[in-house]
Amino acid sequence: QVALSRTQVCGILREELFQGDAFHQSDTHIFIIMGASGDLAKKKIYPTIWWLFRDGLLPENTFIVGYARSRLTVADIRKQSEPFFKATPEEKLKLEDFFARNSYVAGQYDDAASYQRLNSHMNALHLGSQANRLFYLALPPTVYEAVTKNIHESCMSQIGWNRIIVEKPFGRDLQSSDRLSNHISSLFREDQIYRIDHYLGKEMVQNLMVLRFANRIFGPIWNRDNIACVILTFKEPFGTEGRGGYFDEFGIIRDVMQNHLLQMLCLVAMEKPASTNSDDVRDEKVKVLKCISEVQANNVVLGQYVGNPDGEGEATKGYLDDPTVPRGSTTATFAAVVLYVENERWDGVPFILRCGKALNERKAEVRLQFHDVAGDIFHQQCKRNELVIRVQPNEAVYTKMMTKKPGMFFNPEESELDLTYGNRYKNVKLPDAYERLILDVFCGSQMHFVRSDELREAWRIFTPLLHQIELEKPKPIPYIYGSRGPTEADELMKRVGFQYEGTYKWVNPHKL
């Protein structure tokens, strides 16, 4: 086992960053958080920038500027975001240094004079007029057009580079997404736009490419001749908990499936790229999406959770019991969808996408189930092999396979070949997804960000279904809070070829 401390991990990262040409360590950078008073800024962006600063992973002359409508001070920003920093008493001095680099400007999102004030403020910072500028839009999409237009007109660096990070949702359907994309691309070049999907920053999602293309053993079996089906799962054990009003506007397909799960599907299904260059990788992902037809209604199961009468606390409440959810809402909190990649490698292999709230566990994984062994000599005792990439929690890679049961006879039983990170790298604290992705933006690497043509294809696949749901308002199937979801989803999976045995229990190697 390799035991690495946080300091050692960050030392390795620093070495990698400083050796590259793309990370300008000594240049002045300004990180501007648009929507600095909001939840995302408070819980994710400010803490992430602090962790990067604490670990010495930001360029040395980096300033952080918050911008929002609320009249706040840096002290206010500190008060609301610091509880999420997880700072230790030993880091007190470092924390003071961090907040000394912070400033805040209040202004409207659609007022040109406010942006001119913001620009004057940035120019007044040390070497601010020639600094590289990175704008993070932690804002609702309704203000994107006004904000990007004003940034472009008043706040661009004339000497350094300018980059803009856009948070999902990128529209509600193909038409609104196209409108937003066309607007942003009329102001910024594609190499300046970073559409963030934080799932692409997760260690195991990034590991998929290495697993596939750096190991000879997987190449020959990664196709329709050997793989019976692919299941991509995202499960949350909690409901909307008072935030249903926002969720109800989008629903589970827009929230998770059309982005996170579809991105994971691309990494499983794509061909080997010409290189690890950002556009070479994204070219292959677009090719996969172009091979997927629009979702067919007979390959869809929609569910909505109801309270568990035997549960406790939140578990007793259904989705419609959330006071922020519109009365009688038919918005799905669970969806199972089957897609097919219609190309030579994957023809006929079902890709089953499942996601839901208020389920029995927290889990995100990719599961490849292989065909049955031909010419069975073990009297149907063999179960199908599976390769599982567990994204969260407890990152893991393992192969479910058959071995001989101890004893006199040739009785096979299920076991696993474990390729888990935790076994080799004991207690290594890896940077989280937002840390990686923000560092990628500083480096100018777009590999783990969504390109406009990729986004367009993703919406093309799901828009007809979303429009049909909005028009017909089908009643989702009720499922109990804390269950596996509607049984109809299991029946759909069985119908397209997935075999669920229920006889195997994964042993978490992190707890051995």
Results as ranks from 00 to 15, higher is better:
residue 255 D to Y: 12
residue 255 D to T: 14
residue 255 D to I: 06
residue 257 M to R: 00
residue 257 M to H: 07
residue 258 Q to P: 03
residue 258 Q to M: 15
residue 259 N to F: 15
residue 263 Q to P: 12
residue 264 M to V: 14
residue 264 M to G: 06
residue 265 L to Q: 02
residue 266 C to M: 09
residue 267 L to E: 02
residue 269 A to I: 03
residue 271 E to S: 08
residue 277 N to Y: 07
residue 278 S to W: 05
residue 278 S to P: 09
residue 279 D to E: 14
residue 281 V to I: 11
residue 282 R to C: 05
residue 284 E to I: 01
residue 286 V to Y: 15
residue 288 V to W: 02
residue 289 L to H: 02
residue 289 L to E: 00
residue 290 K to N: 07
residue 293 S to K: 10
residue 297 A to F: 13
residue 298 N to T: 10
residue 298 N to Q: 07
residue 299 N to Q: 09
residue 300 V to K: 05
residue 301 V to M: 02
residue 302 L to D: 01
residue 303 G to C: 03
residue 306 V to Y: 07
residue 307 G to V: 03
residue 307 G to C: 05
residue 310 D to C: 10
residue 310 D to R: 11
residue 312 E to V: 07
residue 312 E to I: 05
residue 315 A to D: 09
residue 316 T to V: 05
residue 316 T to L: 05
residue 320 L to R: 09
residue 320 L to H: 13
residue 325 V to Q: 04
residue 329 S to A: 11
residue 330 T to R: 09
residue 331 T to Y: 00
residue 334 F to D: 03
residue 334 F to S: 11
residue 335 A to S: 09
residue 336 A to Q: 11
residue 338 V to R: 07
residue 340 Y to R: 08
residue 341 V to K: 01
residue 341 V to Q: 00
residue 342 E to K: 05
residue 344 E to K: 12
residue 345 R to P: 01
residue 345 R to Q: 15
residue 351 F to N: 02
residue 354 R to V: 15
residue 359 L to T: 03
residue 361 E to V: 12
residue 363 K to A: 11
residue 365 E to T: 07
residue 366 V to P: 03
residue 369 Q to T: 09
residue 373 V to N: 12
residue 373 V to C: 05
residue 374 A to V: 13
residue 375 G to D: 13
residue 376 D to C: 11
residue 379 H to K: 10
residue 382 C to P: 10
residue 384 R to E: 02
residue 386 E to K: 03
residue 387 L to K: 01
residue 389 I to R: 03
residue 393 P to E: 10
residue 394 N to T: 10
residue 395 E to K: 15
residue 396 A to V: 15
residue 398 Y to I: 14
residue 399 T to N: 04
residue 405 K to D: 15
residue 405 K to N: 15
residue 406 P to M: 15
residue 407 G to D: 11
residue 407 G to V: 10
residue 409 F to A: 13
residue 413 E to L: 12
residue 414 E to M: 14
residue 415 S to M: 15
residue 415 S to L: 15
residue 415 S to N: 15
residue 417 L to A: 13
residue 417 L to M: 05
residue 418 D to H: 12
residue 418 D to L: 07
residue 419 L to C: 12
residue 421 Y to I: 14
residue 423 N to F: 09
residue 428 V to P: 13
residue 428 V to H: 10
residue 430 L to A: 15
residue 430 L to R: 14
residue 433 A to Q: 15
residue 433 A to M: 15
residue 434 Y to R: 15
residue 434 Y to V: 12
residue 435 E to N: 15
residue 435 E to F: 04
residue 436 R to Y: 09
residue 437 L to P: 12
residue 438 I to G: 00
residue 440 D to Y: 05
residue 441 V to T: 08
residue 442 F to Q: 04
residue 445 S to E: 14
residue 446 Q to P: 05
residue 449 F to R: 01
residue 452 S to T: 12
residue 452 S to I: 04
residue 453 D to K: 03
residue 454 E to A: 12
residue 455 L to G: 02
residue 458 A to M: 14
residue 460 R to L: 01
residue 463 T to E: 14
residue 463 T to Q: 14
residue 463 T to M: 11
residue 469 I to H: 11
residue 469 I to G: 05
residue 472 E to W: 06
residue 473 K to Q: 11
residue 473 K to E: 13
residue 474 P to R: 11
residue 478 P to Q: 10
residue 483 S to C: 05
residue 484 R to A: 11
residue 485 G to S: 03
residue 487 T to D: 12
residue 488 E to V: 05
residue 489 A to D: 03
residue 489 A to E: 10
residue 489 A to K: 01
residue 490 D to T: 13
residue 491 E to F: 04
residue 491 E to L: 08
residue 493 M to Y: 14
residue 493 M to Q: 11
residue 494 K to D: 15
residue 497 G to L: 14
residue 499 Q to I: 09
residue 500 Y to G: 13
residue 500 Y to M: 15
residue 506 W to D: 14
residue 508 N to A: 10
residue 509 P to D: 11
residue 510 H to S: 07
residue 511 K to N: 12
